[in-house]
């Protein structure tokens, strides 16, 4: 059994959060650069230019990329042969989150659902983090992290279709969700599509799809083809950067598909904005 100190996890999580708050991941930066070259609308081109300039300023001056520094979302893969010394893994992740948001001057965006008051006093700064655990082989811990902003989360949707809806039904649904969203989720966006499983499995898959690096191909060629088809259809909507009209509404579509019940076809669409702050670490 390998032992990992509680504080090692806290520090790793804190560092990830502070880094992501100010440094746009390279895959997103590269995708935006390519989008700027290809964008046909001069207004949208200028918006993307501003986004790249924003990323440069944020990185050089260590300022948050966006004032919405999001809720902290984690997918954590815990090896069977590892244990945390000195506390619970969940507590370590929450503590690292609190430290990262505080020391990085990132905004606390968590609030009670009805009073809308910040939980700072009762629970902590920007806590609790949203954590999805899984158990895997080995003696390591893999932590994937993303900061999830409200603008793009607010336009996300899920629905359980009858199986007959098929691929065409899913493509139509994705188009409808993105069309209704317009400029609100801060395009150019990444679109995560979770297909199959149960209702909640589809939703979590659509979230996890957003953690995939933008330059990677879907290993399933059938899904890769469906992603390409959706991307074209979304960009044909003409929404453009920040909804100002243009040809680059989405940078990528990522699908995660799962086996599902013979009676149902769950579909979830989770949107990530251009400020796609994500990273991962192995301890």
């Amino acid at each position: 059994m390998r032992e990992i100190e509680f504080d090692v996890v806290v520090k790793a999580v804190k560092d990830m959060i502070m880094h992501c708050g100010t440094d746009l991941p390279q895959d997103t930066y590269d995708a935006l650069e390519k989008a700027m070259e290809e964008e046909k609308s001069p207004v949208s081109k200028e918006v993307i230019r501003q986004l790249l300039e924003n990323a440069n300023i944020a990185k050089d001056e260590k300022r948050p990329l966006c004032q919405d520094t999001g809720l902290a979302v984690f997918f954590v893969y815990v090896g069977e042969e590892v244990r945390i010394n000195g506390g619970l893994l969940r507590d370590a992740i929450n503590k690292g989150t609190e430290q990262g948001y505080t020391e990085g001057y990132l905004r606390a965006s968590t609030c009670e659902p009805f009073s809308r008051l910040n939980l700072k006093d009762s629970v902590g700064y920007n806590l609790p983090a949203i954590i999805h655990f899984d158990i895997v082989k080995g003696d390591k811990i893999d932590i994937e992290y993303a900061a999830k902003g409200g603008g793009s989360e607010n336009v996300s949707r899920a629905r359980v279709f009858p199986p007959a809806a098929g691929k065409d039904g899913i493509v139509e649904y994705v188009k409808e969700v993105i069309s209704d969203a317009g400029g609100n989720p801060c395009p150019p966006i990444t679109v995560g599509v979770g297909i199959g499983g149960t209702f909640e499995k589809a939703v979590i898959s659509s979230k996890h799809a957003l953690f995939r690096d933008l330059e990677t191909e879907n290993p399933d060629s059938e899904m890769a083809e469906l992603e390409a088809r959706m991307l074209v259809e979304i960009n044909n909507l003409g929404i453009g950067a920040m909804g100002m009209g243009g040809t680059k509404t989405a940078l990528a579509v990522h699908i995660e598909a799962n086996p599902c019940h013979i009676a149902s076809l769950p579909v979830s669409v989770n949107v990530q904005c251009h400020s796609s702050r994500h990273t991962h670490i192995t301890i």
């Binding site: 986004l51 300039e53 924003n54 300023i57 001056e61 990329l65 966006c66 100002m244 251009h274």
Partner: peptide, 13 residues
């Protein structure tokens, strides 16, 4: 007026 969403560092400056 629309400002560029997500350009928080640039606009903050």
């Amino acid at each position: 007026f629309g400002a560029t969403g997500g350009a928080g560092a640039l606009l903050g400056k």
